[in-house]
Computed example of a mutant assay.
Amino acid sequence: MTAERPDPLPGQRQERLLRALRATGSVVVSTLAPELGVSEMTLRRDLNALAARGLAVRVHGGATLPDAPGQEGVGPGSEAPQLTIGLVLPGVEYYWSPVVVGAREAAARVNARLILRCTGYDPIEDRKQVQSLLSYANVDGLIMAPTLDSLENGELVTWLDSLPVPVVLADRRSTAVPVRNLEWVTSDHAAGGALAVQHLVAQGHRRIAVCSGPTATTDQLLGGWHRESIRLGLDPAEQFAMRTDLTERDRRHAADELLERCTSTGTTAVIVHPDILTLTLVQQCLDAGIAIPDDLAVVSYDDEVAALADPPLSAVMPLKQDVGRMAMEMVHARLMAGDRRPPNRLTVMPVLNVRRSSTTRRG
């Protein structure tokens, strides 16, 4: 393999590419990249920049001049995709389904193709699927939600930051190591926890517990709950937090333990994450004769199915579809502007949907 020659500035490099394009009317990435001494990924990025300026039309494997014969209908709005974006997520069920919907809608607006890969919360699979997309699908950019809960976080993040295509993290952000190129769109789950506390305090509660499953949301949620409780003058010694796994058996044990601790400590309100755990708690309350919200106010976190409970559950809702949409818009903007656009990092505020489970108290 021949090493890539020292690269000129992007403007100079694109001018060389444009001269080659005008000389022949079309270019093939795999053929031209060795001639220009740049990588195929660098060349695809330059072609995207030229296409954004109306100087080229992207086609599969390369580009043509805008007025080249036989290219009618290849521009924006046509059926032929102009960009290919890899979407690497832990899964497509529950939390991630709205993220996919948002990314797909945004991709359709810019005539981009999405290729979805699922990794099952496995950091080794994260790397494997990214390498596959880069090597065999020739993606122009990546949107991904890597697993960042292990000691290898720093190595994975550093590797993603060094990739030659734009990478946007969806509902993830780098805290392990400093990064230069990575971008992200993430929900502010700490702010979501604070929203729930503010609402419950406004309803008169002074003892507010949290019970959460083992997700990437948990630490931020607990941090927001803790800080907002202190800020609003709640006694830290009178609050408590629990963590649990989310199997059916663990959910039932956690709900029983949570109710016992609420009864023994005089706790009158709980924040529970995710919805499936909250629904288990509601069922246990019904079996035990505990009235919601008169005996115990409940706020769920996620709001996937919270409105279907009886009573309907107040819930903090991360705007997951917006996260997917904004991540797609971000990677597209980076591809169009190239190195002229600095990395962006956005935080999306959740919303609180107030329903019957937290809005009235007895006596």
Rank of each mutant, 00 (worst) to 15 (best):
T244V: 13
T64K: 13
A269I: 09
E15A: 14
D322H: 11
R252L: 12
L89F: 12
A3G: 04
R334G: 08
R341N: 00
E238N: 14
L308V: 00
V88A: 13
R206G: 15
R45H: 12
G25A: 09
A337G: 03
G73E: 06
G75F: 04
L169S: 14
S135A: 14
V185H: 05
D245V: 01
R127K: 13
G324K: 05
K320S: 09
A51G: 06
L55W: 01
S300I: 02
V130K: 03
P69D: 10
A297F: 03
G102W: 01
S174Q: 11
E125Y: 04
V130H: 03
D67M: 01
V59F: 05
R249P: 01
A107E: 04
H189C: 08
E304F: 08
V305G: 04
E329F: 03
D188H: 11
M317H: 06
D303C: 04
P123A: 08
S97R: 11
P90M: 06
Q131V: 12
A56L: 01
K320L: 10
D219R: 15
E79L: 10
E248D: 13
L222G: 07
L148S: 02
G233S: 03
V167Y: 07
D171Q: 07
G77Q: 04
G73R: 00
A170K: 01
M317N: 05
V57E: 13
L21M: 10
Q220Y: 12
V130I: 13
T278Q: 08
M349P: 03
V299T: 11
A112W: 02
V299S: 10
R45I: 02
T42D: 08
Y95R: 09
S212R: 07
A255C: 03
S39W: 00
Q321Y: 01
V99A: 06
L279W: 11
S358V: 00
V305R: 09
A3L: 10
N111F: 05
E248I: 08
E248N: 12
R341E: 09
L18P: 01
A137Q: 14
E40V: 05
H189F: 09
L116D: 05
D287F: 10
D219A: 15
I124E: 15
M144R: 06
A106K: 04
V157A: 09
S357M: 00
D339E: 12
A202F: 07
M328L: 12
R207D: 12
L308Y: 10
N153C: 09
A191I: 02
A337N: 10
P311I: 07
S135R: 14
T218C: 14
R117Q: 12
H226E: 15
M144F: 02
T218I: 07
G120R: 13
D256G: 02
R104S: 15
M242H: 12
E228I: 03
E72Y: 07
G86E: 07
S150N: 11
A254T: 02
A51C: 08
R362G: 09
R261M: 01
A112Q: 02
A297S: 14
D275F: 04
G266A: 04
P343L: 02
T64M: 10
R180A: 11
I271M: 14
T347M: 07
A297Q: 09
P350Q: 07
A288K: 14
L133F: 08
L182T: 05
R325T: 03
M326L: 14
A254Y: 05
T267P: 04
T267C: 15
R206Y: 06
S162M: 10
